[in-house]
């Protein structure tokens, strides 16, 4: 991912005269077919970009594909799980984004920790996470999974954030987050997977 980005930034910086339109970054990142007369060809001529070729590293291509078919582990913990179900059901319809609920961790790429993680359930969350095949991603949905929420003080049985147990890629705040917020979190995760996200993602 990183290689593609570096080059694209270069193009954008060098086009300062204002005559040639800056090529949109997404042409390259999304693997669009680059027209022959486009300025990028002057830049990347030696890189053998022929008409109709897709300018991509294999890694980029794979990430792009992965980011659009996130199969989600059905793991409802608490109130947020209801909103997660609402996001999966007819009105919000997460299937549009290639997010399909799966019953088994062995078949899923995405763990949405939807709800409060207690000390009693934390080992199970951890186990489910390690049962998922690599590469796997985690969304902490709701304030509870992010930081313990209302139960931060005096909640003797609540883990103060699921990131104490498993690594988290995207946090979605809200108590509960609306389904739109969850969808936004999933889109953000797609950007993380494609390496487009801003911020200090690994």
């Amino acid at each position: 991912m990183a290689h593609g980005q570096g080059r694209v930034r270069q193009i954008a910086d060098s086009d300062t005269d204002g005559n040639a339109p800056t090529p949109p970054r997404r042409w390259i990142d999304h693997g669009a077919i680059v027209p022959l007369n486009h300025p990028e060809h002057r830049e990347f001529g030696p890189l053998l970009v022929a008409p109709g070729a897709v300018l991509h590293s294999a890694q980029q291509m794979i990430s792009w594909a992965r980011s659009h078919s996130l199969w989600q582990m059905m793991f409802g913990l608490a109130c947020c799980a209801i909103e997660m179900m609402a996001a999966n059901a007819s009105h919000y319809d997460l299937d549009r984004f290639g997010v399909m609920p799966r019953g088994s961790p062995r078949q899923s790429d995405l763990l949405i920790v939807s709800g409060t993680v207690t000390y009693k359930v934390a080992p199970m969350v951890e186990r489910v996470y390690y049962q998922m095949p690599e590469p796997r991603w985690v969304i902490a949905m709701g304030d509870c999974a992010t930081a313990g929420s209302l139960y931060y003080h005096d909640g003797y049985s609540v883990v103060k954030g699921v990131d104490q147990v498993i690594p988290v890629d995207v946090y979605v705040s809200g108590c509960p987050p609306r389904p739109e917020a969850l969808i936004d979190g999933i889109l953000e995760l797609e950007r993380v997977i494609r390496g487009e996200a801003e911020g200090d993602h690994p």
Partner: peptide, 22 residues
């Protein structure tokens, strides 16, 4: 007990109005 969120302990430390959120 996997979803035990210590409600009864928490409300002992909140005012009567605050309990509604819990």
């Amino acid at each position: 007990g996997y979803m035990h969120r210590s409600l009864e302990k928490i409300v002992e430390n909140r005012s009567y109005h605050q309990v509604i959120a819990f």
